[in-house]
């Protein structure tokens, strides 16, 4: 199984201890990230999708108590059990930014405002590999070209504030990819962007993955984005995995009532489906505790957010 999977998550449970009691963020989550594939984790706020990706990066706060296992099977080296690495283990450093790297939601704050773009991207190379400054700089230039920047040499001498949101997100993707990570985690990378920019970034992520043949874990709340970018889909709700499968299967023939409910909630769902099927989907959602009952579930989630 390790031949095809880059990461396998087994029975991952994460609890946050607070003074007001403990809150379960993930309950017995298990799924695999296959090699050479974009896996999207989709869910609403409080579903635990970001906790999952942060667990892979070991970015959870100290108040988190984890059980279960996350195993990374890098190419050409021994498997690493991420959950059992000690905080000072050198493998953790090679993991973050080396084997696995991350693109965050906010393109405004992820770049240092006082350093040139080129320096920041080259810095990412120098952090993980022993190459000369010139080599790092030229590597940075070719990476920035790959993410679709033009006039790269000139742009590398500019500062982040001179860039638009979309260009910044391209730079961040370049920084994430420059050490050839085997897994790229994108945590809502397009949520803060305008729709036209979002489309460009989605196309970029998809084409880069096809070119680099790496694995991508794509976290989003938007089923439209999922349909356009993912090969596989993991549907999460309230800290649990409800459904895992191929993108076409999940979106065209969803099995779990919650997935049906999400699809029916999509704006414009009416035009694509008949009125009856929307009714059916809503009914399916209601069977799960949708409709007004969902508002109560939402209430519980909100309190958890608040406590966290």
């Amino acid at each position: 199984m390790s031949a095809n999977n880059l990461v396998s998550i087994n029975n991952l449970t994460v609890e946050f201890k607070t003074e007001l009691g403990s809150v379960t963020a993930l309950k017995d989550v298990s799924f695999d990230l296959p090699r050479n594939c974009i896996t999207a984790v989709v869910g609403e706020s409080g579903s635990g999708k970001s906790v999952t990706s942060n667990s892979i990066m070991r970015l959870l706060p100290d108040s988190a108590q984890t059980s279960g296992e996350i195993i990374l099977y890098p190419q050409k080296s021994e498997p690493i059990s991420i959950t059992s690495l000690a905080e000072k283990d050198p493998r953790l450093r090679s993991l973050r930014g080396g084997l696995v790297s991350m693109v965050f939601q906010e393109p405004m704050t992820a770049l240092s405002p006082v350093h040139r773009i080129g320096d920041q991207v080259a810095e990412a190379v120098l952090c993980h590999r022993e190459v000369s400054k010139e080599a790092a700089w030229s590597e940075a230039a070719s990476m920035l070209e790959q993410v679709g920047l033009t006039d790269v040499q000139q742009k590398m001498r500019m500062y982040p504030f001179e860039f638009s949101g979309g260009m910044r997100q391209r730079v961040i993707i370049a920084m994430a990819l420059i050490c050839h990570p085997q897994l790229l985690i994108c945590d809502e990378p397009t949520t803060a962007l305008d729709v036209t920019i979002q489309a460009e970034i989605l196309v970029l992520i998809k084409s880069l993955q096809q070119k680099l043949q790496n694995s991508v874990l794509f976290i989003t709340h938007d089923l439209g984005v999922v349909a356009q970018v993912a090969d596989r889909v993991v549907v999460m709700y309230d800290g649990q995995v409800l459904e895992v499968g191929d993108v076409k299967q999940i979106l065209k023939n969803p099995q779990h009532p919650y997935t049906c409910h999400l699809l029916a909630s999509m704006p414009g769902a009416e035009r694509r489906t008949t009125k009856e099927s929307k009714q059916k989907n809503w009914a399916a959602g209601a069977a799960l505790g949708g409709g007004t009952a969902l508002a109560t579930a939402e209430d519980g989630r909100q309190v958890r957010e608040f406590v966290r």
């Binding site: 036209t196 489309a199 460009e200 089923l223 439209g224 076409k248």
Partner: peptide
């Protein structure tokens, strides 16, 4: 037209193909 071409459809068969600015 640009805006409309950028909407990601939840149907995986309708490929996203944003117009070039």
């Amino acid at each position: 037209r640009l805006l409309l071409s950028a909407i990601p459809s939840p149907d995986p068969d309708e490929k996203l193909d944003p117009l070039d600015r």
